[in-house]
Structures are given as structure tokens and as C-alpha cells.
Computed example of a mutant assay.
Amino acid sequence: MNKNLGWFNLTSLVLGFAFLYLPILLLVVFSFNESKLVTVWAGFSTKWYVSMWANEGLMDAAWVTVRVGLLSATIATALGTLAALTLDRFHRFPGRTLFSGMVYAPLVMPEVITGLSLLLLFVAINFDRGFWTVTLAHTTLTMCFVAVVVQSRLVTFDKSLEEAAQDLGCPPVKTFFAITLPLILPAVVAGWMLAFTLSLDDLVIASFNTGPGATTLPIKIYSQVRLGVTPEINAICSIMIGIVAIGVIVASIATRRSELERDKAERAAFRVDG
């Protein structure tokens, strides 16, 4: 019975991963296809990667996407970390429920609603749509994810370390940068990587808030796919997959190191107490 159940679980797992990742693997494989027909294999070639670099439209969109991702992820990390500290350290203050709801609202809000509401805001304040509106929109989208990641680390944070530093005369601001931030840094880095990845991937919100000269790569790819998939699109998508994969690996390593350091500190404290 257990053996049959084990084979069933294994088969379900293999089929599930195949359903999720086999299309991605095929996209990467066909990005090295010699033929212009993306579904007909005609031999190995890297010419579409060379052609992709020569495509000014794709490269301009990629550069806009990278700039938006870097800037929005950085702003979102700063704001999300502050929001997580506020929610973790101050359990009672006027408007805490409203503040918490506003921080986490983008997690459950459909992207269409978020994009449309931001568009109406920019129109109402007469803010021209372009690079900065896309950046602000992506900051709004990703800040809540950073807050969740950092707050989950702060839940297990040993606040006695901060208290000890302040008892020794360390000011609160210096305590944060000398004690708190280094200990939660892996979570902050993981939040930044998650925010950057979400910004690279976003299509819906960016399409609502983009303007002249601010076409992101997902928008460019989507507009070209409607006319037919080309091998150049396979190539640029493969590069995006590689960037996202590297981000996930870095975030996982940072999280793992954070857990190991916490376990080491707990064992050291246990030895001292013993």
C-alpha cells in the first residue's frame, strides 16, 4: 500500500514538473534552432542570439526593463523593509490595521485593478506616463513582497541583541545599521531579488502605465508574439529565464545562509547559558 502510494506520488511529481518546466525547456532548446520556423528543428545555431543583439527595438526595451527593475526593486526594498520593521516593532498605534491592509493589498489585488487605479491616479495628478510611472507602479507592486519576506525574518530575530547594544550606549539608528541590518540582510537581499524578478516579469501593470520611450521587454515581446513567434523572441526569453533562475538561486542561498547563521548563534548562546 505504501509502495503503491509512493509510486503514485512520484509519478504525480514527475508529471507536475514536466507540465510546468517542459515548455520552458523547449523554448530554450529552440532558441538555438537554425531554422526560422520555431517548431521545426534544423540544427544547432547561435545566430538568433547575435540577431537579437542587433535588434535595436528589443535591446531598447531590455534596457528600459533593467533600469526599471533595478530602481523599483531598490525603492521597494527600502520601503518594504521599513514597513516590516514598523509592523513588527510597533504592535499598537492608531491606524495600524489600515496601514497593514494597505501594505499587503497588492498581494491579493488583481493586477488589472492595480494597474487601472494607478493609471487613474497619474491622470488625475497630470503626471505624464513614461519611465517614472512604470517605476512607481512596479514599486507599488513589489513593496508588499519585500515586506512579507523581511517581516518573516524579524519574527525570529533576537531583540536582546539590540537591547544589549543600546545598553552599551549605541544610538538607535547606529544599532539598526550595526546590529539589525547585518542580521536581516539575507532576507533584505532575498526581497530585493524577488522584487527585481517580479518587475522583469510584469506585463499587465506596465501596459497600463507605460508611455513614449518606456516600452518594457514583456510589452515588446507580447506585441511581437501577436504577429508570430520569432527565434529572436525565444533567445531573449531564454536570457530572461537565466536571469530569473540566477535570482532564485541567489535568494535561496542567502536564505539558507541566514538560517545557518541563526542556528549557529542559537547553539553558541546555548553553550554560554549551559
Rank of each mutant, 00 (worst) to 15 (best):
R89G: 05
R89M: 13
R89N: 08
F90H: 05
H91S: 14
H91Q: 15
R92C: 08
F93V: 00
P94L: 01
P94S: 04
P94D: 06
G95E: 00
G95V: 00
R96T: 03
R96L: 05
L98A: 12
F99H: 07
F99C: 06
F99E: 05
S100E: 14
S100Y: 13
G101T: 13
G101F: 02
G101A: 13
G101K: 10
G101M: 14
G101Q: 09
M102D: 11
M102K: 10
M102V: 15
A105I: 14
A105C: 13
A105P: 12
A105Y: 14
L107Y: 14
L107V: 13
L107C: 10
V108A: 08
M109V: 08
P110N: 01
P110E: 02
V112A: 02
I113K: 14
I113Q: 09
I113N: 11
I113L: 15
T114C: 08
G115C: 03
S117G: 14
L119K: 08
L119E: 00
L119C: 05
L119R: 07
L119A: 05
L120K: 06
L120Y: 09
L120H: 09
L121A: 15
L121K: 02
L121D: 11
L121T: 12
F122A: 00
F122C: 01
V123K: 03
V123Q: 01
A124C: 02
A124F: 00
I125E: 09
I125R: 02
N126W: 10
N126V: 11
N126G: 12
N126D: 08
F127P: 00
R129H: 03
R129Q: 03
G130R: 02
F131R: 03
F131L: 09
F131W: 04
W132Y: 08
W132Q: 04
T133Q: 02
T133P: 07
T133A: 11
V134Q: 09
V134F: 07
V134Y: 10
V134P: 09
H138M: 10
H138Q: 10
H138D: 10
